[in-house]
Write a protein that binds this DNA or RNA. Structure first.
Lengths: 408, 408
DNA sequence: CGAGATTTGTTGTATGGATGAACTTATCCC
DNA sequence: GGGATAAGTTCATCCATACAACAAATCTCG
């Protein structure tokens, strides 16, 4: 009845998750691969317990044992544990305004396969574009060992699932895209259309999510070295997407629609997108909106007044809108992604100024403005990581031969 | 090292919490008091397990056994379980602009003691006001059995802790108030000052929180009958406070400062408080700001154009600001509290109009605007409930004679 | 009015997973 | 080569829950 189901022997699953996370986290934060004993002391579990759990994880390909490295100390050398490559992977697909693509990432965060096709999808036909994406996904998966690729001596890769990043509002339970203004799509049965052209996505119904949310997830992953990060991610593209990360987790809200700030009203009654969107910045700088952002960056670096003024105006509006977000969700760190990352050298200072002036708590916790470290296709990576995160959250369902080993 | 500590036999604590919550929740949502068997089937735990856990909770005064009621069905009559009165209680104190007070609430949500003193605290001296509050708290606690009150045959009430609601930004770890514009207080060592005049608060350092957050908590408690509620709570007073409730839990953010929307910029460059705050509304209606909100309500009901225009202007600005919040946190339900609740008949429609127009997801999830059900001193109740909530979250530390019973 | 039905609550016994203390293995140091 | 040291494993034990049988308390029907 309540949200908390009762547990019994499911305590094992919990500890399994703790151990797995400990190993993967160490790998992701750049810490040296821990041994079973390290995991035991870090988690507080007994060495015997950790050993048993690790053995099951290794047998299922969720954890890899590395070669013992010659240690400097006395004692039996430890077996380093790390994230395994090529055992379990997830598909991260994306449809965006100017490209579509797929990335397949494994637990070690290695990109096993990547396919990106550029093209202008404004006002495109959903069925056509999604058919193309479905074929691309199947093609990418076909390159994996065990899924059609003739790779001798390679163990087959298990697929954990798939995700799809979209630049708009999705209904993740129905698998539909409700609204993507910049694609010109509305109420599209994305999952259904993809299932037609892709046997992979038919078998693994994709997790639909907003592009900014998934890009923020990838960004959070890159920042874990300094501890669980919390920040507001702004993804500047043709539209403006946003996402909120709390302690390393995406805060999606009830339906996954949180972080929408492109439609915030700014001081003069227009929406943020109308002031700080890519087209608006280019127009204000007197540039062609088809040209993209590079000419703007060149002009600003050359010191052209119109370009600089356009950037400052956009940044000031962006800062004011972000100040509202910071005041509402109490997360003082901002990360500029997408186009904004490219323009960060000119945006950062005015955004920070606006934040400091308008955030009520600024005197006690100084806001920061940082530049995204994720690449161009961060959302694809983030989507794959989101799927892998589900595995890590509940590893027990991904164990092979759960009890067969115990039969003597 | 990680945020998730390892558990072992602490599975028992978890189930203890599940059982306790099941009993208290049923009582709070108006469901009939469940029996041990009901709890077992609702949680999925075995009857024997539930029985053992309930016995310990009853022995510690965290659950009460009611008299068996004559049932209609065959079978042994069930022992109804309910929240106990007068065994464990929490102190909810509040300093606000026009009053200060204390409420002591027990697990059954009965108000055991209440003290409220009205007075204007704008620009007051923190030390003086807090000394008065401290004395008030000690006086209120002194009226409880076992703490000075001579109540024969009454078992002593255990105090779970205390909380303090403040109309501003608090540092809950340091126990200080950072900023309360409408009190004119800044960087006040609230916990330290209270400890001087109150032995109760010296023993139970109060949990500091924003007034709107705690009022929202009380509101969430009242709305649990329909399932875990999610809403944005706006508390209109001299200032404007806000809080976000997600699945019945207050979303406080990193430092508990989330929900701050009084300083949102609205269309004409002013902050929301300057447009929709109580003083602003009264001024726009041509009324004296000292008179309070009642004259405004009377004028609006009489159909005076200035009053109606003032309310519509405030509501429109409020709606636009709330639309930003709804877009950012994806919670489409708004609850009007404080002064706004009193004026709701005039505010509701224009707020809803503004929300529907500006919330991106409105076509799919229609926003709603509701009126707060909590009373005038909702924050005091909410504060006490917050403290009791900590007990419910971890009941094991509140069990009496944890293992002594097991000694034969 | 009594026997069976029915449901609640309790009392065992069994089981699964974690624990901690040995024990084995593998290295370094002298 | 022997002792020290640390990693990993084996094994007896413990603890909370599950399951089944039982006792208790009521209703129903003949």
């Amino acid at each position: 009845m309540r949200s908390t189901p009762a547990r019994q022997g499911s305590l094992r699953e919990h500890n399994l998750g703790i151990v797995l996370r400990e190993v993967l986290e160490a790998a992701a934060t750049g810490a040296p691969p821990p041994s079973r004993a390290d995991v035991a002391s870090a988690t507080g579990l007994a060495r015997a317990t950790v050993s048993a759990l690790v053995d099951r994880l290794v047998a299922s390909g969720l954890v890899a044992e590395l070669e013992p490295v010659p240690t400097l100390r006395a004692g039996r050398p430890a077996v380093p544990l790390a994230a395994p490559s090529g055992t379990l992977a997830a598909v991260g697909a994306e449809v965006n305004v100017d490209y579509l693509g797929v990335r397949i990432v494994d637990l070690a965060r290695s990109v096993l396969v990547e396919r990106v096709v550029h093209g202008d999808h404004r006002g495109s036909d959903p069925a056509t574009v999604l058919a193309e994406l479905g074929a691309l996904v199947d093609d990418a998966v076909g390159a994996l060992p065990g899924h059609g690729a003739d790779v001798p001596d390679a163990r087959p890769v298990r697929l954990a699932g798939a995700s799809l990043a979209l630049p708009g509002l999705v209904d993740r339970t129905a698998g539909t895209l409700l609204l993507a203004p910049n694609l010109g799509w509305r109420e599209v049965d994305v999952a259904g259309l993809l299932a037609r052209s892709s046997s992979v996505l038919r078998e693994h119904p994709p997790l639909l999510a907003n592009e900014a949310d998934l890009a923020a997830r990838a960004e959070a992953d890159l920042r874990r070295a300094d501890g669980p990060p919390s920040f507001v991610y702004v993804s500047g593209e043709i539209g403006i997407g946003g996402a909120i990360v709390l302690d390393g987790q995406i805060f999606g809200g009830r339906h996954g629609w949180a972080g929408e700030l492109g439609h915030t009203l700014v001081a003069d009654g227009r929406t943020l997108e109308q002031v700080a969107g890519q087209d608006a910045m280019l127009r204000a700088a007197g540039l062609d909106r088809q040209a993209g952002v590079e000419p703007l960056l060149r002009a600003a670096r050359a010191g052209e007044p119109d370009a600089l003024a356009a950037l400052v105006a956009a940044a000031t509006a962006l800062g004011a809108a972000l100040a509202n977000v910071v005041n509402v969700v109490d997360v003082g760190h901002v990360v500029l992604g997408g186009t904004y990352a490219r323009l960060a050298e000119h945006l950062r200072a005015p955004v920070l100024t606006a934040l400091s002036a308008r955030v009520l708590a600024a005197p006690w916790v100084q806001p920061t403005v940082d530049v995204a470290r994720g690449g161009d296709v961060a959302a694809m990576t983030g989507g794959a990581l989101a799927v892998l995160g589900q595995v890590v959250a509940d590893p027990s369902s991904w164990l092979v031969e759960p009890e067969t080993v115990a039969v003597r």
